[in-house]
Design a protein around this nucleic acid. Structure first.
Ligand SMILES: NC(=O)c1ccc[n+]([C@@H]2O[C@H](COP(=O)([O-])OP(=O)(O)OC[C@H]3O[C@@H](n4cnc5c(N)ncnc54)[C@H](O)[C@@H]3O)[C@@H](O)[C@H]2O)c1
Ligand SMILES: NC(=O)c1ccc[n+]([C@@H]2O[C@H](COP(=O)([O-])OP(=O)(O)OC[C@H]3O[C@@H](n4cnc5c(N)ncnc54)[C@H](O)[C@@H]3O)[C@@H](O)[C@H]2O)c1
Lengths: 230, 230
DNA sequence: ACGCCCTTGTGAATGCGCGCACAAAGTGGG
DNA sequence: CCCACTTTGTGCGCGCATTCACAAGGGCGT
């Protein structure tokens, strides 16, 4: 390490880099399980499916954690990325909408292992409230504000029908939640300072359909666009 | 319009534009339901949560379908976008993995309404094969190649555990599927000409956690990044 | 028929992200 | 101790995407 520059950490990691850090993290974790102590940018990039220069530039935004001629220490890099992403602390997540998707999410084990704790599951339907899902009792949406406050929920997940999504989002925001993950097919509007990310399967399928049609149309020449990512 | 150029359609709509067309489509459909006959770029952009100049530039890639001083004809624009995205035809989708997520997807009604037909649902677990899900009988994964061929599946959805995903993907590809939507947390590798899109909830949460941490850290000044989209 | 006003379509400027290519730096062997 | 080899960290140029700002186009009222 021995860096003379006390590493100012320029305040501001590019958004594109932030989106890739979790991918690197997963690649590194698979290396740990295999017992690999160090890894070069080339190897790691190959596992993560990115260009090695891009990977190095991404990591350089966190600091200078590699050793020239050797590579990166896997454990140390896992720690640094985790810290940067805020995964050294636990985050409480609340899910609204205990339907098909909400239940699948609640039942999914892959969140807890990464520091995301599902603190509560809400629904508006009295027939659903009280159901036991993944060890949680479904709560009534009217208790959202209380629960958010008590459980210190910082991330809200919306898995309700589209028509209810904006209303649920507003309630999350006024309860103090500043990060929202939205599965409903609507554009949410939120005040500044609140982050919204959306997961829209229908859009994904439509994008695939677009490219599929292009492949079928006349110019079925080369692999023109190829794999979008790895 | 009186365009001298006989509409060359320059062969190639920017990827960023393609990703937004479905959003515009949804906004337009909500306008139709409300009976609105025409819409200006400003209004539509506001509904879709984008900048109006961006919206106009996006639409200009499809052709010159607006009327100056008036705006866009809602029905006509719906048709043009649908055609461009390939939604005027039906697409067959196969889902592999009839677990929490696979079942939620199969039960979701929002796909069929947009021209995506779920043609089959596969699993490797004998205890699951034969289950009835959303009117479909879960088939054994070994019949994948046959079914893909018979049902003319063009989009494959992977909802298996991570460890099985690459294998399933390979089978899709060798069966002739050239569009894959992957929910498993792994980087898939595919030959040129095959499109892969991934939906990774864990990554979304980690990105939110990153920003959440930043908000909590010292500089809790302005809404520095604000809402990512609308 | 004319001109006002509204909205589109796009040229141009700016910014961001990507990837090449290389100098700097550290390792290990002789 | 020095040299050859490996790998990092990054300067630089390129292309895509976003946004501003405005000229050109078309409807509508008079
Ligand atoms: N299921 C999928 O695979 C899938 C795929 C893509 C998108 N989506 C989207 O995800 C959302 C949920 O899908 P789903 O299949 O789980 O739907 P669902 O109908 O099975 O479940 C929705 C749940 O939300 C509850 N709800 C309705 N209004 C509410 C409110 N105001 N407050 C709290 N809860 C409320 C309902 O009681 C119901 O239990 C929808 O917007 C859907 O478009 C789902
Ligand atoms: N459930 C969620 O909300 C959620 C959230 C994020 C990510 N994911 C990811 O989605 C995937 C599926 O999640 P899930 O919760 O549905 O898991 P699950 O364990 O409930 O279901 C997986 C299904 O895949 C089947 N399967 C296993 N190997 C197979 C093979 N080789 N061929 C065909 N089928 C096979 C299993 O029999 C099982 O039925 C996982 O990769 C998971 O990480 C799920």
């Amino acid at each position: 390490m021995t860096r003379r520059t006390p590493r100012p950490r320029e305040r501001g990691i590019p958004e594109a880099t932030v989106a890739r850090l979790p991918v690197y993290l997963r690649a590194l974790q698979s290396l740990t399980e295999r017992g690999t102590p160090t890894v070069s940018s080339g190897e790691l990039a190959s596992i993560a499916g990115v260009n090695s220069a891009k990977l190095r530039k991404d990591l350089s935004h966190l600091g200078s954690y590699g050793t020239r001629g050797v590579g990166y220490d896997v454990e140390y890099l896992i720690y640094q990325i985790s810290r940067e992403l805020g995964l050294t602390q636990d985050w409480s997540v609340a899910i609204v909408g205990a339907g098909n998707l909400g239940r699948a999410l609640a039942n999914y084990g892959g969140f807890g292992t990464r520091g995301f704790r599902i603190a509560a599951l809400f629904d508006a339907d009295p027939a659903v409230v009280g159901d036991e899902v993944a060890g949680l009792s479904v709560r009534h949406i009217d208790t959202l504000e209380d629960v958010v406050s008590v459980e210190k929920v910082s991330i809200g997940v919306i898995a309700t029908p589209a028509a209810a999504a904006q209303g649920v989002c507003d309630r999350f925001v006024s309860a103090g939640v500043t990060s929202v993950l939205n599965f409903a097919p609507v554009v949410l509007s939120v005040p500044d300072g609140v982050d919204v990310r959306k997961v829209d399967l229908s859009i994904e399928l439509q994008i695939l359909a677009f490219h599929e049609q292009r492949k079928a149309d006349g110019h079925e020449g080369p692999g023109w666009i190829g794999a979008l990512e790895a």
